[in-house]
Simulated scan of single mutants.
Amino acid sequence: MKKEVEELEDELRSEYDFSKMAGGVRGKYVERYRAGTNLVLLDPDIAKAFPTDTSVNEALRLLLQVAQRQQPKNPVGAD
């Protein structure tokens, strides 16, 4: 097994010299990650119509309101 370890070569390219990287902050985005994310990729035509997250949220809330009004008060079989 020791022979296998000795035969391994460094496959990283020279441009990946991590010793030259400075200023990195460990855990910089950890709080955002813990808060959770829900990213959605919009098709270009939809993104053009709804250019901000606020406009998307408003449209979806309106759609939810319309959908809730369309649901019957007493669905069949919900006794």
Rank of each mutant, 00 (worst) to 15 (best):
K2D: 12
K3V: 09
K3P: 05
K3F: 06
K3G: 06
E4Y: 07
E6M: 13
E6F: 07
E6D: 13
E7D: 15
E11P: 11
S14N: 08
E15C: 10
D17C: 07
D17I: 08
D17Y: 05
S19K: 13
S19A: 11
M21Y: 09
G24V: 08
G24H: 10
G24F: 12
V25Y: 03
V25A: 06
R26F: 14
R26P: 03
K28N: 02
K28P: 00
K28A: 10
Y29F: 11
Y29G: 01
E31H: 06
Y33Q: 13
Y33H: 08
Y33G: 06
Y33F: 13
R34T: 03
R34E: 10
V40L: 07
V40I: 10
D43N: 12
P44Y: 11
I46Q: 03
A47D: 03
A47L: 03
A47W: 02
F50C: 02
D53N: 15
D53C: 05
T54I: 05
S55T: 08
V56E: 02
N57M: 10
N57H: 07
N57L: 13
A59P: 04
A59T: 05
L60V: 10
L60F: 11
R61N: 08
R61P: 00
L63A: 15
Q65D: 15
V66A: 15
V66Y: 15
A67P: 00
Q68D: 14
Q68L: 11
Q68Y: 07
Q68W: 04
R69Q: 14
Q70F: 12
Q70L: 15
Q70A: 15
Q71R: 15
P72F: 09
P72L: 15
P72C: 13
K73P: 02
K73L: 07
N74S: 08
N74E: 12
V76P: 03
G77D: 08
A78R: 09
A78M: 08
D79A: 14
